[in-house]
């Protein structure tokens, strides 16, 4: 009986919260938000950064520091998860290998995933996508084989090296730009021709660092969790 009372109270509370939120949102007309900063960015982004994809211009240019923070959060989550799982029993070796189809498909897919991931990372300033999306695909390229044959060891050492140096490279790019200008993370190199692969200054470099870092982090994280699960 007590359980039902608790559930009912929760439902009642949430209904009230919902009504409150609806009332608040009604005060904000949909589709008519002031978007002062958004409009200004749309107008200024091509001239400021040279990137065609304005979301990229925001992520790496206007709000590059947010992106550094975001990469840091992934890093610290992976480090904490690694520390938490560090003492867990590793049972990867006992887990069964996957069937023939998954096994061969995993290794067949590997080069394609690699190329696709690299393409998406490098074209982040031109088309939708970028370091995070491409990095996730790169991570999949290395993680799918682990799923197919859990016995095969995942090279955590290499992942850690790539992760560390890519992260440091992001901040170093930011600090290097401090020398030329008077602000952290100022884009340098020329803006180049709009739409070309080598354009938008140092933004593609930042995306490359993010892609490598996210790729190695995700792959390492998933390999660790799956290893610990197999052992549990």
């Amino acid at each position: 009986m007590k359980g039902y009372g608790h559930t009912a109270a929760t439902l009642l509370f949430l209904t009230g919260l919902g009504i409150l939120l609806i009332a608040i949102l009604q005060a904000l007309p949909f589709g008519l938000a002031p978007m002062q900063v958004g409009q200004a960015i749309v107008a200024a982004a091509p001239g400021d950064t040279g990137a065609d994809n304005i979301v990229t211009a925001i992520l790496l240019g206007y709000r590059g520091l947010d992106t550094l923070g975001e990469v840091t959060i992934l890093f610290v989550a992976a480090a904490a998860a690694g520390m938490v799982l560090g003492g867990a029993s590793r049972g990867g070796a006992q887990a069964e290998n996957a069937g023939f189809i998954l096994h061969s498909a995993a290794y067949l897919l590997f080069p394609f995933l690699l190329v696709l991931g690299a393409y998406i990372v490098l074209h982040g300033h031109l088309t939708p996508g970028g370091g995070f999306q491409g990095g996730a695909i790169l991570a999949a390229a290395f993680f799918v084989p682990v799923l197919a044959s859990p016995a095969s060891p995942f090279n955590h050492r290499t992942a850690m090296l790539v992760e560390g140096f890519a992260g440091a490279a992001f901040i170093m790019i930011g600090l290097v730009s401090l020398v030329g200008s008077d602000a952290f993370l100022t884009p340098f190199f020329g803006k180049g021709e709009a739409g070309a692969l080598f354009s938008a200054g140092s933004l593609p470099l930042l995306y490359l660092a993010i892609g490598l870092k996210v790729g190695s982090e995700l792959a390492g994280l998933m390999a660790r969790v799956s290893g610990a699960e197999a052992g549990a």
Partner: peptide, 21 residues
């Protein structure tokens, strides 16, 4: 204007990235 204002953030983060190595 003081660009060094980023140092209290950038130095520990770069060190954190490199520390595992």
């Amino acid at each position: 204007t003081v660009p060094q204002i980023i140092f209290p953030v950038a130095i520990p983060l770069i060190a954190a990235f490199l520390l595992p190595i």
